[in-house]
Design a protein around this nucleic acid. Sequence first.
DNA 1: CGCTGAATCAAACGTCCGTTTCAAACATAC
DNA 2: GTATGTTTGAAACGGACGTTTGATTCAGCG
Lengths: 226, 226
Amino acid sequence: MTVDSSHRFDELDTKEAILAAAERLFAAEGVPRASLRAITSEAGVNLAAVHYHFQSKEGLVRAVLERRWQPLSERRFELLERAERSAAGAPSAEEVVRAFVGPPLEMIQRERGGHAFARFMLGAFIDPKGEVREMLLEQLKETIDRFTDALSAALPHLPRAEIYWRFHFMVGVMAHTIALGSLVHGYSGGLCDPHDVEGVTQRMVDFVVGGFQAPSPAGAATEPGS
Amino acid sequence: MTVDSSHRFDELDTKEAILAAAERLFAAEGVPRASLRAITSEAGVNLAAVHYHFQSKEGLVRAVLERRWQPLSERRFELLERAERSAAGAPSAEEVVRAFVGPPLEMIQRERGGHAFARFMLGAFIDPKGEVREMLLEQLKETIDRFTDALSAALPHLPRAEIYWRFHFMVGVMAHTIALGSLVHGYSGGLCDPHDVEGVTQRMVDFVVGGFQAPSPAGAATEPGS
DNA sequence: CGCTGAATCAAACGTCCGTTTCAAACATAC
DNA sequence: GTATGTTTGAAACGGACGTTTGATTCAGCG
């Protein structure tokens, strides 16, 4: 019996219940196999509520991804800006790389079933008919710009095209590790522990920084024109 | 055993037609959206032929992947062994890395729609319910063993666990590049050309070798500072 | 020829899915 | 209280899917 927020509270409750159940089932079963009936059943809401709140199944997929993507991007920017403030001049490549690869690893450690969710998110990028991918790429654009700029400042000798390629490689390392990192334990014979998030982060950062610091292929001899 | 194989020719013909159509449609539409009706229609064969030759849709997926995976592995081993023969002692990390990341890039250049197929194959790894993944991992085991051994020989100062982690990172770079490399052209503003296979290969090799040559984190030769 | 087994075919089966519909419940504003 | 707009509920719709079935074709062979 409070102010106008009572019905909104219900709305958010239903919406959130759907989002939570959808996230879990999308990750565990894959989007095509996770039926709206299973999702609404697990959420304890009516089947039609999905179309009321999200218009369609794809709208639900989009909402689930957006909900996780936003904090991830914000956390990245936060770490990057912190490094930029604390550093005299530009932050080092290592700091920039850590600001990029750290947050996803934090996320999969914090959330239960994080690996499964990471696979689900990577799947959204891979899906050839993914209209959701467009949205993610749109949101990724700002991240790409900010981080390639920072990397360019940290590695001024690298041509811009090299920065983009190596940024792409870094994304590959990150995505593959959060999505399939748990496999390493198996095929290393138990030698590697994917649950040691700090250790994995450090290893990723070392590897990627090493890659960024590799000599430029076309050689320093030729100067990029324009 | 008769030498004559006329009926076998027909069988292979139908089988091959299904495999080719399935490969194309799986890559273009994604496995769940590629219906057996669409596949058999494109192949010009009867719907029931799929179950006759492959038992189920999943059997077809498995067969399509297996057909591409095998030559890929063989090509990798061929390049690795060539490097091992030509080198005095062990081949360098660069040669080993090139033997690993080169063949997939050759493949997507050679085949039409190679990028789409690479996405499809990566999707098979990501699929949380993928029983096909088990098969691929099984086949990957030998590749992992051979290449981690070779990398260990090229980089004897690295602990074995580091080798596994960095191998995993290399797989990430490779997978992400063959599956989503075409995106780089877009977000680099046309600066990067993903169709320049040799250039991309060289860049990947440089990056990955740089990563492998990074100092070991907890190792004896730790870098000063923090 | 007639038999045999593999291969193809058209047709159907049963199921599950995303979506829609429309009425009931609900809180709010007057 | 009545009117209004929002949210939930039960039930159904129409279609697409993987799979199965049983007949049919055809080659090889004694």
